[in-house]
Amino acid sequence: MSSAMAPIQIKADRAGFLLIPDPEASFEAVMAFLEERLEQSHDFFHNTEMVLDLRKSPMGSDEISALCTRLHQKSMVRIVEVRLGEEVSFAVAGAPERKRVAPEAGRRHEESAPVIVRNTCRSGVRVVSASDCVVLGDVNPGAEIIAGGDVIVYGTLRGVAHAGVGGDQSARIWALSFEPNQIRIAELVAVPPRGCKPGRGRFEIAEIRNGVIQVVSL
């Protein structure tokens, strides 16, 4: 049986073993195949950590937990992480914290659609986007906009904006008027100088230049 035809692929990478189920295969076939492989390989997988990659073939939560339990019973295999989408994954309860591999700097997030907020973000609102985030309104003090890519505010930015959360240093923050509590790009943090009055009515952009966050107007 070639590995391409297998109902579930077991790959090894730097982070450990990766389980990638075939979208065509049924859950029963996946389970049967896994049990057979563990049986054949004797103690090779004993006491290892694995990552379940469900980006191509979604599974129900009961199926995930059944799979975890079975693997653990069979040869003490622990599923430490389940990947659901490009930016969405969750660590399985009880698993030790693993260091995430930071995405390469400069990578753009063009593959997923931007999040568009069509009203003013008031205090207490938190918007999280894997790619860009566009706010058609103000961002008031106490609100947080967090984006993997750029943050674009068609209004006054008075709250907190964090662009390039994954470490993207080329991410920028755009706003019609800048009066923020704090802005963050990648791992840098900046606060506006005291007593600084913003120019109204034209876009201002915050970006990283020479290792510091600078705000320039268009």
Binding site: R122, S123, G124, V125, N140, P141, G142
Partner: peptide
């Protein structure tokens, strides 16, 4: 700030 939060709610 609190009024803003309350308006949101």
């Amino acid at each position: 700030r609190d009024a803003d939060r309350v308006i949101g709610l």
